[in-house]
Design a protein around this nucleic acid. Structure first.
Lengths: 323, 323
DNA sequence: CTGAAAGCGCTAACAG
DNA sequence: CTGTTAGCGCTTTCAG
């Protein structure tokens, strides 16, 4: 491996000067700079990140903690974060939180032991207190899809309650009255919030839901719960709390020989992977997780970046009819 | 941040000794060792990876280049590689090749510039020559799902031709004669191989395929091609060259009011994410990519690890009937 | 604008 | 078994 020193010797300057041009320091005469740049190109020099990290006490690495690697969701999130990070010359280190507070905590510690300069935390089991303590310890991080009092300026959140209300209201506004829902596991706060938003919107309209099933956010549970639902009831509309379950529900609906939206309308959460790509394209409430992740990364890199907000938005496609 | 030196002072030994216990060097008296370990625990010491990398010229990082982050496939692959890497105390750096030779090459270079100790390459656009050159340059790497002459000992491959033959033969053996196929894009070598395996098996049996559609390995193309297929023909069996397209095909089949396997049998590639989880569970040819990835990682870490082979295997589930 | 010099925290001979 | 001594390749004052 060729080093700074080699380049300096070749270019006939000091190591400090090479370091300056590599780091884009302005205080270098143009002639010197180009001489050095030529040497760098010629020799194919590439700085040693370890040496750089050691000397500067900055690893140029960002950490990302995500619940799991499953589902199409994760890849999109990672892509989003990584492209933003790389645009600033940072590397990304990814770990799984696996939905347990202990694991999430360990994942975070691992990241900091690795000397990440900062981290994007998509954690749901870890307590607010732990996160606050982390902040007090001077750790750089932002929290994705969560609101923590005292840490508002580091939280990128989304109003799931409102999103679910919007889903129910959309169905209601189209004249539906026989409405069912497949929610995520009640064990998770965020699932309960989505569920509640739906329930409250229904209650506000004075309509009793046909059913409110509990799924697990995966394809299989979407299928199972929809199948169960259709065996017992005959809802005119169904709200699925994520895309993957909606896909499962689609399979079940087809199997029951029902057409969308003629026999049953479907609306779902939409994180951008699939809702638009199935037929009929699914009307959905957009959950802009990739935009949120992108902004989270930006915020981590530039703490004074202008604040962005992310509101639930209805995307009308072909799976909801008016009655 | 607390350093080796701090621990040494606290424990009343030299830095070298602390280094030895941290690195599990055996030549340390038990009493000294426990004294040091106590100090480490007490102080919450964690070695600085940059300093370690600089001094030892080993980053303890492994690189992974993968075509993209889309699909359920990628998460499983990454999970597999990462858990194997972490078991050996290595960190993982992931990049996307994006199906272009230039991008793949750049991704690889980036990884080595980052001083990865080795890399797992899942690249399909990059030429064999480039890969051979990389090997000549003394780079450590293994190649996933590909066979390169001259690099046999670094390649973890899978016989896609045989896998596709097996799919066709299975259908044939069950008495099917009206058989169609949805393959991947012809622009990719590996897709063409799968396609050819199917075609050859059919020809060998003296049966003309009903059709052989070209998809794009995604949900949407699976749906579209299946829909197209069903509008024009009435196949008794369908072979989909990956899971995602099979899922799309399922949607189209349902929409055409056809039942699986009563009206149409379906067999597909199975990378382990979904085939088992839809209803009916899909009979499939298992493509053990996660096992292959795990082994690839092991091979990278232990070049003399006992060789494993990965053969296509039929998993009978509920989507193929006998006629 | 450029160079000299002092580390960053750790590993790895080499002595003892 | 343990300590001493050099660096690893880079950044960063501080002079000039």
């Amino acid at each position: 491996m060729i080093t700074l020193e080699d380049v300096a010797a070749f270019a006939g300057v000091s190591r400090a000067t090479v370091s300056r041009v590599v780091n884009g320091d302005s205080k270098v005469k143009a002639a010197t700079r180009s001489k050095v740049e030529a040497a760098i190109a010629e020799m194919g020099y590439s700085p040693n990140p370890a040496a750089r990290a050691l000397a500067s006490n900055q690893s140029q690495m960002l950490g990302l903690v995500t619940p799991s690697y499953g589902g199409g969701f994760f890849g999109a999130l990672m892509d989003s974060v990584q492209s933003e990070a790389e645009a600033s010359g940072k590397q990304l280190l990814v770990t799984q939180g696996r939905d347990s507070a202990d694991n999430e905590w360990q994942a975070i510690q691992r990241l900091y032991n690795l000397r990440c300069d900062g981290a994007i935390l998509h954690v749901r089991a870890l307590s607010d207190e732990k996160l606050c303590r982390l902040a007090q310890d001077g750790r750089q991080f932002v929290v994705l899809d969560r609101q923590i009092s005292g840490l508002e300026d580091r939280c990128i959140s989304f109003d799931h309650y409102q999103a679910s209300q919007l889903a129910a209201q959309t169905l209601l506004a189209r004249g539906h009255r026989q409405i069912a829902c497949i929610s995520g596991p009640k064990s998770r706060v965020s699932s309960r919030i989505r569920r509640q938003g739906f329930l409250d919107a229904m209650q506000e309209a004075g309509i009793e839901p046909v059913a409110c099933m509990e799924g697990d956010y995966d394809l299989q549970s979407g299928y199972q719960q929809a199948d169960l639902l259709l065996r017992q009831h005959r809802p005119g509309a169904l709200y699925c709390c994520n895309e993957e379950m909606a896909l499962g529900a689609l399979l079940a609906i087809s199997e029951h020989r029902l057409s969308i939206p003629q026999d049953i309308s479907v609306i779902c959460y939409d994180s951008g992977e699939r809702a638009a790509f199935v037929r009929p394209a699914l009307t959905s409430i957009h959950f802009p997780i990739t935009d949120m992740a992108r902004f989270a990364t930006r915020l981590l890199l530039t703490p004074d970046a202008p604040r962005e907000t992310f509101a639930p938005r209805l995307i009308e496609r072909d799976s909801v009819r008016s009655v």
